[in-house]
Design a protein around this nucleic acid. Sequence first.
RNA 1: GGCGACGUAGCUCAGUCGGUUAGAGCGCGGGAUUCAUAACCCCGAGGUCGUUGGUUCAAUUCCAACCGUCGCUACCA
Length: 560
Amino acid sequence: MDDSEQKLLVTAALPYANGPLHVGHLAGAYIPADVFVRYQRLKGSNVLFICGSDEHGVPIKIRADREGITPQEVIDRYHGMMRKSFQGIGLGFDNYSRTSLPLHHKISQEFFLTLNRKGFVTEKSVQQYHCNTCGRFLPDRYIEGECPHCHQDGARGDQCESCGRWLEPEQLIDPKCKECGSCPEMQSTKHWYFRLSEFQGKLEEWQASKSDWKSNVREFCSGWFQEGLTDRPITRDIDWGVPVPLPDAEGKVLYVWFDAPIGYISSSVEWAQKQGQPELWREYWFDPNTRLIHFIGKDNIVFHAIVWPATLMAHGDFVLPDHIPANEFLNIEGEKLSTSRNWAVWVDEYLDVFPPDPLRYYLEANAPESKDADFGWKDFQAHNNNELADVLGNLINRCLSFTEKNFDNRVPPACKPEDADRAVLDAIAHSAQTIAAALESFQVRRAVNEMMDLARTGNKYFNDSAPWKALKTDRERCGTILNTTLQLLASLAVLMEPFLPFSAEKLWQMLNGSGSHREQCWNAIQDLRLADSHPLGKREILFEKIEDGIIEEQVAKLHS
RNA sequence: GGCGACGUAGCUCAGUCGGUUAGAGCGCGGGAUUCAUAACCCCGAGGUCGUUGGUUCAAUUCCAACCGUCGCUACCA
């Protein structure tokens, strides 16, 4: 199929709106998704990139109660912060929505009703702890008590941190509400269950065809299939969420895990409305040829690879996920990231101090693709200084500076190309192919390294060719060397776009390229040429080095 | 407890569908150069590929056990 006809519907996990965005979020889902989408756009693919804030659920409600504000104020705050962070780091969503919108509520309710009408939802009464003081039913992890096994105090209703055993809340001795400390009591309550168990066969059959999925996703699912899927409650007893659209469901909302992925659909609908073509979203979601790709972190695998596809199957009509590239986690300075201990690097705070591309580059080159990776400030500095500044930035600067000083800042003509010159042009084509192949299989790390290797090739060529010597003996030869290197820079401006969009744009301007580098075609990069005598733009340092002191401040801040 | 992942040079990681001298970047040592953000380029030192067994003509690569790190375990989304 022609790339321009193949529709791509790309989603990045909806971030939960009870805290700001951190580098772990970026590394796991957002940067890989953005790199993929930017590459696809250069290729000319028809791609829709969707995201939004996930704004329901108990944790948001509890945060609001603690701070004495409304849940709406909580989500407004974090939705705004995350949106700004995404923009600052260059996430190019076509639409960034939020699940608190009436549009999303309506679509989620319709979804629920369809499943109910088709008989995939059943009603059940269950016993649950209820805190009379806080006035709500308590999720397992919000109940604490003495562990029945090791008798340690402070065990949670889902698991004892001390002995690691998995618990049921009613096993706890002397249970207490984690928020207020009072003793909860068992109450009967009614919930609606999604009949997930009915879909095991279809899911297994469907996944059997996904041999190109990453092993972490496949292994994870096979474990679940072996255990056997069970029906899942998809409603909750709180007043913050999408109300269950049934007459006898007062005070019940849809479980966030049910409504959140529907946010991918409602965000697409909102996008279509903003385009003035309110039905346009159907061309993506209802076309069986659409490749639906969900970028997520590994904590999301079971929901995206099992529960959500089953939900889509139950509803019918919608396209099923084609691929679910799930990344592992990012640690910070060797320790597990923890928002409650403030052991995290927040994107908004990063952007107060640094430009976006160095962080993008670091997370791309150090992406947690096959196993957990580590974010280290010194490591970040090293990647910026040794690679972005010394290899890529220096190649650009040495070439432009030389051309400016000796050739009136114009592209010298290429005369009598030699083997070395041709080899550089061949290397461009080869890199473009290698990077494309890596990105098609979601290997950002390999792809960005290949891009940097092309810059290394450029440095070696420039060095071996020694235009500063040729300048004195053979001005024509010197011009040819610069011409070749400048063509390499033009290609790099396009090749950099998926990884370093801000710098790619600046480089294109420095080269005084026509239009935007984003209008170039990835598949024709090797044919991209700056014309003889083409006037170059204004030169500037593309990647500043980062001084030790700045890094030390960040490390100190992390430990404070 | 169950399931899974990972453990390769000082550091961060590739790789090996079993088979000549195990790779990259950084860091380190030496050299060359001066166009450039004291950058670039070349050379070099450094690894019994977590441990112990097994299969095999041959294992770092397959299998088992063990040790270590981590994740998931179904209402933390």
